[in-house]
Design a protein around this nucleic acid. Sequence first.
DNA 1: CTGAAAGCGCTTACAG
DNA 2: CTGAAAGCGCTTACAG
Lengths: 341, 341
Amino acid sequence: MPEPRDTRRRPARRPTINDVAAAAGVSRGTVSRVLNGGHDVSDSAQEAVERAMRKTGYVVNQHARSLVTQRSQSVAFILSEPQERLFEDPNFNVLLHSCTQALAKQDITLLLTLASSLEDRKRLGRYLTGGHVDGALLVSTHSGNPLIPELLARGLPVVACGKPLGFERQVAYVAADDRDGARQMVTYLRSTGRRRIATITGPLDTSGGVERLAGYREALADSAPELVAHGDYTRASGEAAMTQLLERAPDLDAVFVASDLMAAGALTALNRAGRRVPTDVAVGGFDDSQIATNTSPPLTTVRQPYPRIGAEMVRLLLSSIEGESPAAVIIPTELIARESA
Amino acid sequence: MPEPRDTRRRPARRPTINDVAAAAGVSRGTVSRVLNGGHDVSDSAQEAVERAMRKTGYVVNQHARSLVTQRSQSVAFILSEPQERLFEDPNFNVLLHSCTQALAKQDITLLLTLASSLEDRKRLGRYLTGGHVDGALLVSTHSGNPLIPELLARGLPVVACGKPLGFERQVAYVAADDRDGARQMVTYLRSTGRRRIATITGPLDTSGGVERLAGYREALADSAPELVAHGDYTRASGEAAMTQLLERAPDLDAVFVASDLMAAGALTALNRAGRRVPTDVAVGGFDDSQIATNTSPPLTTVRQPYPRIGAEMVRLLLSSIEGESPAAVIIPTELIARESA
DNA sequence: CTGAAAGCGCTTACAG
DNA sequence: CTGAAAGCGCTTACAG
């Protein structure tokens, strides 16, 4: 009969700074100095420590380090959206990428956290304020999100993408110039001779929803209520809103849609209704995401410079972690003309 | 002239266990016992501590706690894929969701980490082995992924989704029965009278790619090489592979595609080539993801039970954290007949 | 340039 | 049931 094997792994004791110090024949203080940039350390000591670290396979214990420095060297990227949206909307992808890049330069890890349900948000609040992260990037902020006041109360540095409605003064944020972008688009549509210009808005509890609608109204002498329909940034909502608009205002000759993804949905509805784009109806989007070039016809849209937005968010967050008070950065948008309008 | 305001926020000192102890008139030990389940604490002490915690706004410092318990109460969900795939493929979404659910029950936080570039993987390796997480869920594992040996060497508990090629014995994993699923599908296609059955495989450095191809071959008396084309699980690759197959074997009357997303791409190619599905060509997918019901026609496919896969992964990871040795779980698959075959 | 020492905020045997 | 004390693994003035 085979001897019963112990199936439990013995969790190997990790080498500590003491092991390294012993192996290198120096004090823990010197090892620590090497770990933290090697200032005030002689070449010979530096070398001995480095060799000892390799030999022992030393990896710093972040908890111990964080306990004294009060820094975790990581920040959270918080998506408080239903998970489906995260995966449907390429904007998140692009923003995530640019934030990761910007943080990597500072050797800070980005933790992606999802907070779809209320339950999730509670756990997340505890996690974030437990010292796990030095700050948070808040991505899609609907007004009434309970996470904001909680993080604020705990003093966690936060930077939002888009104006955080209700917290404009207290939370740093980076936003594209939504209002001006919408205005540019509508002005452009008018310049091409369109007269019955409808709009599909984003959710009105987000600044993107509110501001782009405001820009639309500003650019129009008179905006008829039947020309305004609402979406929630999903493709399906764009399709539904377009269908609705066609029923209410069959004579419309243009539509400004507050996101490319919704615009793609609107194209589907127009196509089904037999309207040609742009001959019968001109369509303008917003974002200039990857979608804009994949639709048929490709979308005329308003570019949100996400790489820059991400970089600015990171910059603001790091300075907020250093104690700077919350600032707002507004980044200009640009009209990109393609074939849909 | 207005007095220059100090724009720096004073980082408020967080209350510690000492503040709570003082406010409650007990020792730190007693506060700690309340924090850790309240065993061996009198009702009156318990109550006094709870009141003191509310009053002081106490939140436990996780670093201090982790330093002594050697546990972080969080695990990483590692996606070592280009970010685009994460966002394109709904499987990740579903798996992520089920893992989050399963972990939430244990009050463990899930950290989503992306490791697209080599640079990312290095940073991540450091992060993960620095004690930040108690274990890792490895999601899309191509053979040759350098993260696995690194995590292994550091003794971090790891569970993979799909057989981790090259590490089957050393890494716990959960996989659908890929081979049998493929066999079922091909057998089904034959049972409906198809004779020239092609396949579009997944990447051959993943177990899903290898095993589904093996199942396809097993179910066929003789498989001709011109009937096999390769994809990488993206939609575009499915479309390209189908185009290729139609050129090489214009007389094919069925195709088994190793993922629903690639199958959607294949449908596009078939449609463009004027082949009717399923009249001219039957198409079988794999996954039974959301895509399967959205294509036209809806896909006949093989269901991977992701909710169960996620739950099993979490179970294995937790027991691995407890010191259990790596196990493998194979979950049966099921044929779902719809209209494409 | 280097070491000894204090301290970060917790948990957990150990006595009582 | 409770307190005093040791210790988790680091960093950082402070002396020298």
